[in-house]
Design a protein around this nucleic acid. Structure first.
Length: 572
RNA sequence: CGGGAAGUGGCGCAGCUUGGUAGCGCACCUGCUUUGGGAGCAGGGGGCCGCGGGUUCAAAUCCCGCCUUCCCGACCA
């Protein structure tokens, strides 16, 4: 390929709306172009990167025995009603009204794959089955961001497994899990599988594949000691020793007008002369359980509530005679279930709302002034919390989710009468499913973030995803020397050797040529210069390791191809 | 959905306070010179100033309403 033939025009100015360096790079290098918020075109360069990622996904999934298929993007709303997810995912569903009924643009494909596969799964003899597709998904995200990181239309590689029981489902899960690790290695990402929360997909065991990155929207907790890793939503802190409650004090109530909420309450109490701090306030938050019952959650004032599964924060109108902003646990046991985080055992006494407008009480003791029905992890883990397995301090890592694998079990098949197979002894049972997703369009952004310059003006793509592995450029060239001819010949030989090469053949200054090639991001540059040519040498740059070597012209193609192999093997 | 910022040639911005016939850099076109790291000179083309209404002799500029985009948060396979 020649640069003169590329659809390529580099942009010198930083696009105003791009914050992340990867986003800037992808725009400046003409990889992508925004059509509207959260919707992007892939221009030829970007599409090449994307296609290379897709091919790797295909190769690795084929290798573990999954079959590629293609499901529709347009779904009749009925299949979503059947699983109840038309309501559950209503806020992200794009609806389409057609002349022949209502449709949904698929945000995910569990329902669709069941419809597609069920007729072929009649008997235990038909199982297990692993399938996947690479398909465009639509989600009406409340907030698209960071270019390709979170978009409303994106491509996902989603896989599904069908099995006779839990054990075989786990074996299928393991096959996808291993393929995922291979895929991320090959695209050059260090993706760490972490325990995760199942979200609206449902199901049991699941892992997120997280890449530590400054543009991450997630955090996961990691224990350096024992290797425990979990998404912040799923992570639990280990137990800490409780302390005895204070016997020698009594609760004191202070007047704290206009001080709802922990921060202002602390200030008001301090002004009133009480000895309190944010960490010694007890946050009392009203939750609504699945059956609509009220639950009071207790946690330290400096902690964030991790709303337990199936519950939600109560709305103002549901709070009845609870005094919003002044709720305390004292005297409440008879009317609500009281849940408390184990941290509530780690202080001799607490300050809290006094259950009446404008006053707080200090010196409340667990078991004396208030009681707890059940202890349960209620707080979001923080940096330095103890590991639940070994007690060592956890660290929080900002990260991007590039993949997610779920053991769904019977979550969907159990709801659908036709999602069944016959067992050896003739019973009809729902099959066990797993589902697996990779955010394909997100991957180039994460790679660009990791392998690009902080200024968003250069990148060295990992070999297997680079649009062109080698860029050949002649410099110091005048039309009457043979720099151009040598550069062209090397380009042709490298291509013939099976390594994709790009020839800079435009009539531009050296500076422009080099800057542009740095945006295109070949990991290997081959620089043919008038000076070195005088000594029959050319320059080979390994941009991944920032190494430059001079080699004789005749040896250059072989040297470049060898370097390309070396870089490839580093990612396998 | 809350909080903040911004919409002016393709891109990045100035002009708006104090209304008076729209400007700069990049990119683009023509010519000449240049070519080991975003070249120089000369000439040239391109703009319902986000949309709608209002005030005024006159609106990019003042007033009202709306739309869009970005950032933070809420939310989130």
């Amino acid at each position: 390929m020649r640069t003169s033939e590329l659809i390529f025009k580099s942009r010198r100015e930083v696009p105003q709306d791009a914050e992340a360096s990867s986003h800037q790079l992808l725009l400046r290098g003409n990889y992508i172009r925004r059509l509207t918020s959260g919707v992007y075109s892939f221009l030829p360069l970007g599409y090449q990167v994307l296609r290379r990622v897709e091919r790797i996904v295909e190769e690795e999934l084929d290798r573990v025995g999954a079959s590629e298929l293609l499901l529709p993007a347009l779904h009749p709303v009925e299949i979503w009603r059947a699983t109840g997810r038309d309501a559950k995912m209503a806020d992200v569903l794009f609806g389409v009204e057609g002349k022949s009924g209502s449709f949904v643009l698929g945000p995910t494909h569990e329902e669709a794959v069941i419809e597609a596969m069920s007729p072929d799964i009649e008997s235990y003899r038909d199982l297990p089955k692993l399938v996947y597709q690479i398909q465009t998904k639509f989600r009406d995200e409340p907030r698209a961001r960071f270019g390709l990181m979170r978009t409303r239309e994106f491509i996902m590689a989603d896989g599904y497994s069908f099995d006779v029981d839990r054990d075989t489902m786990r074996a299928s899960y393991q096959r996808f899990y291993e393929a995922y690790q291979a895929i991320f290695r090959r695209v050059g990402l260090k993706a760490e599988p972490v325990e995760a929360d199942a979200g609206s997909i449902g199901g049991d065991v699941n892992h997120e594949f997280m890449v530590a990155s400054s543009i991450g929207e997630d955090h996961f907790a990691r224990c350096r000691e024992c290797g425990y890793q979990a998404n912040i939503e799923a992570a639990r802190a280990g137990e800490r020793a409780g302390v005895p409650v204070a016997r020698d004090i009594e609760p004191v109530t202070y007047s704290t007008p206009n001080a709802p909420g922990v921060e202002i309450a602390v200030k008001a109490l301090q002004d009133a002369g009480a000895e309190v701090e944010v960490a010694s306030m007890l946050k009392s938050m009203l939750l609504v359980g699945e059956a609509g019952q009220l639950v009071l959650a207790l946690l330290p004032g400096d902690r964030t509530l991790n709303v337990p599964r199936g519950m939600r924060l109560a709305e103002d109108v549901e709070m009845g005679d609870f005094v919003k902003g002044y709720i305390g646990p004292q005297g409440q046991s008879s009317r609500v279930t009281i849940l408390a985080d184990p941290l509530v055992r780690t202080r001799p006494s607490w300050a809290s709302g006094a259950n009446q407008e404008g006053s707080h009480t200090v010196g409340l003791r667990l078991g004396i002034d208030f009681n707890v029905d059940r202890f349960e992890n209620l707080v979001v883990v923080q940096d330095q919390d103890p590991c639940p397995h070994c007690g060592a301090p956890l660290e929080l890592v900002r990260s991007v989710e590039v993949g997610h694998t779920f053991q769904l079990g019977l979550t969907y098949s159990g709801m659908l009468a036709h999602a069944r197979f016959s067992t050896v002894d003739g019973q009809e049972l729902p099959y066990w499913m797993g589902c697996y997703g990779i955010g394909v369009t997100r991957v180039p952004a994460v790679i660009a973030q990791q392998y690009g310059s902080p200024e968003g003006d250069a990148v060295a793509w990992p070999v297997e995803v680079a649009p062109y592995v080698v860029s050949v450029v002649g410099v110091g060239a005048t039309k009457d020397n043979d720099v151009v001819a040598v550069a062209r010949r090397l380009h042709d030989l490298i291509n013939a050797g099976g390594v994709s090469a790009l020839l800079e053949d435009r009539d531009v200054s050296t500076g422009v040529a080099m800057r542009d090639l740095e945006l295109i991001g070949s990991p290997i540059f081959c620089v043919v210069g008038a000076r070195s040519l005088a000594n029959k040498m050319v320059e080979i740059r390994d941009r991944m390791h920032d190494r430059t070597t001079l080699v004789p012209i005749e040896e250059a193609p072989a040297a470049v191809i060898a370097l390309s192999r070396e870089l490839t093997s580093e990612c396998r």
